[in-house]
Design a protein around this nucleic acid. Sequence first.
RNA 1: GUGGUUGUAGCUCAGCUGGUUAGAGCGCUAGAUUGUGGUUCUAGAGGUCGCCGGUUCGAAACCGGUCUUCCACCCCA
Length: 456
Amino acid sequence: MAQKPSIPKGTRDFTPEEVVKRNYLFDVMKQAFANFGFQPIETPSFENSDTLMGKYGDEGDRLIFKILNSGDFLKKVDETDYREKDYAKLTGQISEKALRYDLTVPFARYVVQHQNEITFPFKRYQMQPVWRADRPQKGRFREFYQCDADVVGSTSLWQEVELVQLYDTVFSKLGLEGATIKINNRKILSGLAEVIGAEEKLIDFTVALDKLDKIGSEGVKKEMQEKGISAEAITKIEPLLSTADSPSEKLQTIKGLLSASEVGKQGIAETEFIVNTIDQLKLKACSIEIDVTLARGLNYYTGAIFEVAAPEQVNMGSIGGGGRYDDLTGIFGLKNMSGVGISFGLDRIYLVMEELDLFPKTVSANTRVLFVNFGNEEALYAMQAISALREAGISAELYPDDAKMGKQMGYADKRNIPFAVLAGGSEMDAQTYTLKNMKSGEQQTLSLDRLIDSLK
RNA sequence: GUGGUUGUAGCUCAGCUGGUUAGAGCGCUAGAUUGUGGUUCUAGAGGUCGCCGGUUCGAAACCGGUCUUCCACCCCA
């Protein structure tokens, strides 16, 4: 081995054991999605740059993987831009395609492009990898999977209610208890900005507010100041920043603050409808919590905002998020198409499941029985039984070489194959097979029919 | 994008202030055991000390660069 090969940072290989567990997660989600009436679609790994660029803010643009044009891509580049090393202008000239950054924007593009074939409201789910040119950390990769469920073409708040239930159903099926679904509403945030007269600083305001649990009230105030929000405005929202208050106390505070804002009042009404309805319908594995400081998520959210926090005992960021966006397809030219959706972060859910040891022990796609190879004549006899077992849906294999028995048994042991079959001369004469339970060490000699029965 | 951190055998890690042939445990291979694995015993294989360059009589160790790991920002699943 000359130079050890490697893979790009933030990417991973998956071992057979990992793939089996990941597939289990995919299966549980797929079933839940279908169960809730969502239909699967898939979109390409890469899109035209102009489909993606500018949809995730400046920070997002930086994190999009751009694909270099093929051929002599420098030929067409503008001389002046090249000489001045104008990054922004050059990028557009040498890269016309980019890897998908999330599943929501490609979905919006899909809806607009296929609007005449789609029957609305359209409920779709999608489970595909996305790529971000981020700096990797724990639970943070450059290639990872998102599992999204969205509804477009309905403004009904019942969709939000159902999506909360969908989160709960998936986590409940996975045995993952204690996740918190945090909910807020963009209209509440807009209302707040309006009341304090910082409408044009809405994004800065919400980003700072979102950091409350991380940097504390002083930190938030400082950041707001730096972003140019007036001291007077900050004083008005001061009661919100008290970390001592419970979420419901905060809600009361905010109701008072927002009494002068129509948008704000609407946001509160929507959020209370969702939470009260969920309270009546009950959740199995999760809890729901109004968090007026929750502002995570992209700028395109216009109504409800969701974020799922992993159970407290695990140190992991959010394992899911979503919200309502009234205008998403608007950027592609289709107006008045409201959508709402949620996303599951498969890779982080995997890490949480692993840390809490929640994967079922039976999750494995292992061979059930290994036939020991004693030589060609015996192997032929074994193959007849193997074919019959496979026909019966039992996964069986023959050790490929006529190796020492200890080695063959050791192989079965290492791979955790639960049964071994010994079929040599004496078994052939009697038309039987000796079945060994690798765990208990018990052996019994059986006819082919009995063998199949005992392995079922 | 900013700051820090990590890299020694397949894996987990030792290796004192630079000094002969770089170590351990586990794993691996072979034998003890010619139709019986997981235990035990014995022997053995396996390392450009991430990579490139520099300092030095001498570098795994010091310096610079680069890649990788993890962490805190930014941002986010």
